[in-house]
Design a protein around this nucleic acid. Structure first.
Lengths: 201, 201
DNA sequence: GTCTATATGCAGATAGAC
DNA sequence: GTCTATCTGCATATAGAC
């Protein structure tokens, strides 16, 4: 009981509430209720709402980045790498479906801090960019620059999570199980979509 | 002077502030400052903050939907339609770069209201869905369901706008002009990307 | 560590003069 | 139609008992 357990409960509750309402929309009272504790206790463990938010947000993010770095390091064939990157992103999103919306809020709230954090974690894209350019020069993939490829990939992976409340209604008669099925299909669909779009084979 | 002009100034200012801060993060004071008027005057023209937000948001949205409906109606070849849809989405985004973030906030804030609005405007996807399925059956495009294609397209179009503050930093050394250039290239890149991915040709 | 009670500040909204 | 001044409520944060 006590310390560790409570702190963890707070973090879990805060994740839920922050993604439902965003940093500004979230209420400390709601987080406390969700955690089954008192409001004042939040301030015992976390000095301010802002600090709680940062701890939650960057805590989650720091669990995503290392696995991405692993993939970027590998030297397998490019078509396999596409599959690996999509798989990693997608599996992380499915375990943290709130994350995309979370990141997007933060991108607009404090992009400088987020950018610095990524750099601190060793995440930068120069090596991958070179790799892509190399593959294009070698004629292995059709002409495309890294930023375009990156935007395409991230957009396709992330969109169904961001847009879920609307997409599920308009495309699946608000059938939640059908939408989960749709999300499961995404990994294979996106991988194939990208491969067909850029591989000269 | 007066009435019309002021009301329009408020709407313009509200667009800026709402997208910068979101519905919850926005402050009526900041909107008033941005419009160069007094806070109380906002409440003269718009009963509440919520009403102002709705008026701004659905005002913009109702200018996007008709042009999309036009495209869906046309009976041109499918590959041309891809180009037309991408062009329309993208040109609208470039004129309203705040819109994607705006819509995403609203998707999470009140999806029911948004969904109803779209239906009221006559925007539903059943006909396009049939069209896609028909093209697949006819062997004109590779096997893909409409929701997947839709998510791919929207994701690719919208991502660079949503992610701009971060992408510009990490991929373009925070060079704003370079990013504008990148955005201009998107239309052609996305169209080609989709065509290569799904057209059997 | 956890609670109740309270202080503090601020944002949305209104009253009322001009 | 536009302003200044003010009310009201609520959310974060703190004080202090247990």
């Amino acid at each position: 009981m006590g310390s560790d357990n409570t702190k963890e409960k707070i973090v879990q509750a805060a994740q839920l509430v922050f993604i439902r309402k965003g940093m500004d929309g979230a209420r400390m009272q709601e987080i406390a209720d969700e955690a089954g504790i008192n409001k004042a206790l939040l301030h015992y463990y976390f000095h301010s709402k802002q600090q709680l938010f940062n701890e939650v947000f960057y805590g989650v993010l720091s669990r995503l980045i290392p696995s991405l770095l692993e993939i970027f390091k590998l030297e397998e064939p490019f078509s396999d790498k596409i599959e690996a990157v999509v798989r990693e992103y997608d599996s992380f999103m499915s375990k943290n479906p709130f994350l995309p919306q979370f990141i997007i809020n933060e991108i607009n709230r404090d992009p400088e801090q987020l950018s610095r954090f990524m750099s601190d974690q060793g995440l930068n894209f120069s090596k991958i960019e070179e790799r892509i350019n190399g593959e294009v020069s070698a004629g292995n993939i059709r002409s495309i620059t890294f930023p375009h490829l990156f935007a395409n990939l991230i957009g396709m992976v992330v969109m169904p999570y961001i847009g879920r409340p609307l997409f599920q209604r308009k495309l699946f008669n608000n059938d939640s199980a059908k939408y989960d099925q749709f999300l499961q299909e995404r990994r294979a669909v996106i991988t194939r979509f990208i491969q067909q779009a850029i591989l000269t084979k």
